[in-house]
Nucleic acid binder design. Sequence first.
DNA 1: ATTTATGTAGACCAGTCATTATAATTAGGA
DNA 2: TCCTAATTATAATGACTGGTCTACATAAAT
Lengths: 195, 195
Amino acid sequence: MKKTDTRDRIVEAATVLFQLKGYHATGLNEILRESKAPKGSLYYYFPDGKEQLALEAVNLTKEFVEERIKERLSKIEDPAESIKNSIEEMADLVYTQKEEKIALRSTKKVSINLIALETAATNENLRKACESAFSAWQNTYTQKLIDGGFSKEKAETLGLVIQSMVEGAIIMSLTKKSDKPFIEIAKQIPILLAQ
Amino acid sequence: MKKTDTRDRIVEAATVLFQLKGYHATGLNEILRESKAPKGSLYYYFPDGKEQLALEAVNLTKEFVEERIKERLSKIEDPAESIKNSIEEMADLVYTQKEEKIALRSTKKVSINLIALETAATNENLRKACESAFSAWQNTYTQKLIDGGFSKEKAETLGLVIQSMVEGAIIMSLTKKSDKPFIEIAKQIPILLAQ
DNA sequence: ATTTATGTAGACCAGTCATTATAATTAGGA
DNA sequence: TCCTAATTATAATGACTGGTCTACATAAAT
């Protein structure tokens, strides 16, 4: 029986803020304010401070997104159609999050894109956590392709390509303030998998 | 006749640092130190401070990359092959930059990826500058496709898709510390354009 | 009743941030 | 040589940073 949800609230707030504003642009005080937690609690639950918090945020997103993808992929048997479908759902996730960004009521955890770039050259721990998340997602696509009859080699290549396309769509989508990149990427999946 | 190149050196250093470490993680002092510019010069040349500096950095990268892509696309007539070729060159650009990252001797300006994500939700001026850069690059691909006989509509869609794929490859490449994402993305281009 | 965990609370630290105001210096042309 | 404008130096501003610290409350265990 859990006493409080303080710890969870802190991680949730950190997750949203890190992916929305970035690791360096988000201050601990802001996370505390948003999660209505006192500073003493932060270092009680996260003795290693901001980096530990970011690691947990990345891992939380990793699991959340992996779950989402798997659920979507299991609903349609045909790999091309199911992956297309999954990408279209991501468009919604990224986009409805954007709209609610001021209120921050959203608990959506959708991308580690920004943290990944911020830390790729400067923080090996976080870089590895992001790499692990990307690999997990990529692997989900690969597995679906193998189940659908693709060779292991081809499935691995296409998994990497699809994961890259999704990450690219996120960037383009956020900067263009449009879900069109997602939609167009999704449309190309069946063509890509027809080979 | 130009007296000094102080201003240029500042922009160059800012460009490299912003894309390597990020807008918020890069301090003005660091830019000064890296560019060996006099302390007083920054606000003399850039009275609007850090944001102005970032705007110029983004625009510099925009023009540099656009030039590179155009040059590459003009060397091969077939759109698929030329775009594939251009992406393979980008792999080198991104990657050799990475290797020299400590020395920072590199003056390469290759991506606005990180700044784009950092500012998409928090700084409308910079977001627009990044959007403009993405559109310019995307447009270069589109134009090549039109010249190669694609319909305007199809060319525009594919331009967006290709641009998204490239941005995705950059993220994946930096996070995985491998140029494989670029290579695999490049391989898919002819398949994508065979439709 | 006493002790030990568990968690809350926020003042406080030294340092860094971007920015500004103003003074000093330098350079070029008249 | 002098004047003026272009640079650069210096120093201070106040806001904010991540992180540490001690005090305090509550509740469970002994």
